[in-house]
């Protein structure tokens, strides 16, 4: 098993709009990049060439969207094998996906669908994680998703579910601060209680992103800068979990790279404050 390292850098999601920046003469000032694994689970061509070239310069985290770890129908073993092949090629910091399900009975919605936080769901998720970690030969990270439907009668809070999932499987957490904020607003829970309920030693990575207002719901659109309320929640997270690999996610309305680098600089601030306090 390859344990995810304690890696405290700052990074960005590698998106096609910025390939030329990352392949240019100038090395971009990031400590790591995160790739969407499925975009590179191909036979050959430009995607893998680009990935190999970026990997020569930067540490890479692999982030997937199709594992469907909460699927009652089990996991797609062909998918896991292909993911393993990519991981062997990339030698990533870690491999992550989402606490969600994407489809059932052979169909795939390609969305991150919400789970009921029940004992039965926990059993299924933990069994699926055990299989995935066995194939990947490493503990995985799972991200808390944004959700628009909740199942309050299921029994557990999301953070209780995440904590129990980590304890039973040895997996780690990719904490998406924006998703906590979005789900807290949509379902009326306290985001601080969410942070307080997580096992601090399992948080290896943090996502920051923007969202938009829908019809009575916040929607996790990744098409806008991180809002002030999410920055404030991020400071709370850092205060509890200490430094973790932190990055900005932008998947739509993607600005030029310097704009994202400037936004990423803001993520460094809480850590600099904490270090200054510690040194005083």
């Amino acid at each position: 098993m390859i344990t995810p390292p304690r890696f405290h850098g700052f990074g960005l999601g590698l998106r096609r709009d910025h390939y030329a920046d990352f392949l240019g003469d100038e090395r971009q000032p990031v400590d790591f990049v995160e790739i969407i694994s499925e975009n590179f689970m191909v036979e050959g061509g430009r995607p893998l060439f680009t990935l190999d070239a970026v990997r020569e310069r930067h540490a890479v985290a692999m982030h997937g969207v199709s594992m469907s770890i909460g699927s009652a129908g089990g996991l797609d073993r062909d998918y896991l094998r292909r993911l393993r092949t990519l991981a062997d090629r990339v030698r990533p910091l870690w491999v992550s996906d989402h606490l969600c399900w994407t489809g059932i009975a052979g169909h795939n919605t390609h969305d991150l669908l919400p789970l009921p936080y029940s004992g039965e769901a926990l059993d299924i998720v933990c069994a699926n994680i055990a299989l995935a970690q066995d194939v990947l030969e490493r503990p995985l990270l799972f991200e808390n998703p944004s959700s628009y439907v909740a199942f309050p009668a299921a029994g557990m809070s999301e953070w209780q579910f995440l904590a129990e999932m980590c304890a039973r499987t040895g997996c780690y957490l990719l904490l998406d601060v924006n998703n906590i904020y979005v789900s807290a607003r949509n379902h009326g829970f306290d985001p601080i209680a969410f942070l307080d309920g997580l096992p601090a030693d399992r948080v290896r990575q943090i996502h920051l992103a923007g969202h938009s207002e829908g019809d009575g719901l916040l929607i996790d659109t990744h098409d806008a800068p991180v809002c002030d309320a999410v920055w404030a929640l991020y400071e709370q997270a850092i205060a509890r979990f200490g430094p973790a690999a932190t990055m900005i996610e932008r998947d739509d309305a993607i600005p030029p790279l310097p704009v994202l680098l400037e936004e990423l600089a803001r993520a460094r601030h809480p850590l600099e404050v904490a270090r200054a306090k510690a040194a005083a």
């Binding site: 390609h110 969305d111 919400p114 628009y148 439907v149 909740a150 949509n186 019809d215 719901l217």
Partner: peptide
């Protein structure tokens, strides 16, 4: 009612994404 509102988000996103 809250779940139906959320289902509409997923339903719309499914079609739009594909």
């Amino acid at each position: 009612e809250a779940q139906r509102r959320g289902l509409a988000v997923y339903r719309n996103a499914y079609r739009m994404r594909l």
